[in-house]
Simulated assay, not measured.
Amino acid sequence: MVRRYEDPVDVRVEAETAGTPGPLAVRQRPRAFVWRGRILVVREVLDDWSERRSWWRDLGEPDLGKRPERPERHVWRVEAGSAAGTGVYDLASDAADGCSDPWVLLRAQD
Rank of each mutant, 00 (worst) to 15 (best):
R3Q: 14
R3N: 09
Y5E: 06
E6L: 14
D7T: 10
V9F: 07
V9I: 14
V11E: 09
E14G: 10
E14D: 06
A15S: 12
E16N: 06
T17G: 00
G19F: 05
G19R: 12
P21Y: 13
G22N: 11
R27S: 11
R27P: 01
P30F: 05
P30D: 03
R31A: 14
F33K: 06
R38C: 03
I39G: 03
V41P: 00
V42G: 06
V42L: 12
V42S: 09
V42C: 10
R43M: 13
L46E: 15
D47T: 05
R53G: 04
S54F: 03
S54L: 08
W55S: 11
W56Q: 05
R57A: 12
D58R: 06
P62I: 10
P62V: 13
L64P: 00
G65F: 12
K66H: 13
R70A: 11
P71A: 13
H74Q: 12
H74S: 09
R77Y: 07
R77A: 14
V78F: 04
G81C: 07
S82Q: 00
A83R: 15
A84W: 00
G85Q: 08
G85V: 07
V88E: 15
V88A: 10
V88K: 09
D90Y: 00
D90P: 00
S93P: 00
S93I: 02
D94T: 13
A96W: 07
G98E: 03
C99N: 05
C99D: 03
S100N: 09
S100D: 11
P102F: 03
W103Q: 10
V104C: 08
L105G: 08
L106M: 07
R107G: 01
A108R: 04
Q109I: 02
D110C: 06
